[in-house]
């Protein structure tokens, strides 16, 4: 099941974890991604905390933790190949987080609601 945040992240439940990436809309807005700095595995993060730095040819921006929890995995392959964010944003996951609250995903938008948001 896919959910979306107002920060243009996509969230996919995978067992107890949530896999996090950015949407095609976000990757288009960013432009060509040239550098990604990922968080440490095992780091405990708060909802809304800036945990990924993403640099495009144009500017630096952040990706925030969508929910509170613990980082269980990061996609170091993506850090080596940042252009994959533009090539296939829905496959280019950044990190997996185990939410502190198992029901944390419920409040987020479904795809139809997200499409309505970006017009």
């Amino acid at each position: 099941m896919l959910k979306f945040t107002e920060d243009h992240e996509w969230l996919r439940a995978e067992g107890e974890d949530v896999v996090v990436g950015i949407t095609a809309h976000a990757s288009e807005q960013l432009g060509d991604v040239v550098f990604i700095e990922l968080p440490e595995e095992g780091r405990e993060v708060a909802a809304g905390e800036e945990i990924v730095v993403i640099e495009s040819v144009k500017a630096a921006s952040d990706i925030v933790a969508p929910v509170a929890g613990v980082i269980t995995a990061v996609n170091s392959d993506l850090a080596d190949n940042p252009g994959n964010v533009n090539a296939d944003p829905m496959a280019a996951w950044f990190f997996k987080i185990k939410p502190a609250d198992a029901a944390a995903l419920e409040g987020f938008m479904d795809e139809a609601a997200y499409q309505a948001l970006i017009g």
């Binding site: 432009g31 060509d32 040239v34 040819v57 144009k58 252009g83 533009n86």
Partner: peptide, 10 residues
């Protein structure tokens, strides 16, 4: 124009 659909890198 800051960029076209090709993108800055290309």
């Amino acid at each position: 124009p800051v960029q076209y659909p090709m993108g800055v890198m290309a």
